[in-house]
Every structure is written in structure tokens, then in C-alpha cells.
Amino acid sequence: MLTLECPYCGVKAEETELTAGGEAHLKRYGPGSSDEDFESYLFVRKNPKGVHFERWRHAYGCGKWFLAARCTATLEVFGTYPAQSKEPPAELQAKIRAKRPNWEGYR
């Protein structure tokens, strides 16, 4: 059972205080978008074995959504950061790259 630190309230919360929200950094495609783009937004997920970015909500705590970078194979957590982020913070990306030199990047 995972523990993740909520970047809003600073609590290192265990999984039972959290709800999972799937892959992070999806781009929303609305009316006017192509079928391919819409399909990718709604259905296509990376599901990597390795570095992954996810949405989590501190549901039983402060109620805020945050994002987490972790390794799906080892469950190592590289860091958490606010949901109001267009992309993972640069220092977090650098940290992941140092630990996983073959990481292909978050996109």
C-alpha cells in the first residue's frame, strides 16, 4: 500500500486516504477535434512499466488533487507536485533522469 506526500497539506498520506485518478498530463480534446485526438484523450493510456505520472486526490485529507511521479515496477516515488502544472517540474525531471538514465521523458 503506497504512501504519497500531499504537496498541499504536507501529510505523507497512505493510500487509504487517497483516491487514484489515472494518468496525468492528458490534453483535453473537445468539440471540433479529430476522432484520433479525441480517442487518444479519452481512451489511449501509456501504462508503462517504469516511470509514470499519475493523478491522485487527497480525498480523506485536504481534498486536493495532486500529481505523482513513480516507477510502476519498483513503486519508487520520485516526487509529488501540484495538479496545476502543465508538465512535471524541471528538477523532478532531472531527478528521474539521474535515477533512470534510459527514461524517455514524460511525453
Binding site: T19, G21, R28, R55, R57, G63, K64, W65, A83, Q84
Partner: peptide
């Protein structure tokens, strides 16, 4: 309520 907060926090912040 969670759905509303999701959109407000994660998309239209």
C-alpha cells in the same frame, strides 16, 4: 462534488 473539484483543480484552475 469530486467531479467539480477535479475540473476546477486540474483543468480550469
Amino acid at each position: 462534488h469530486g467531479w467539480m473539484e477535479d475540473w476546477l483543480q486540474c483543468e480550469w484552475w
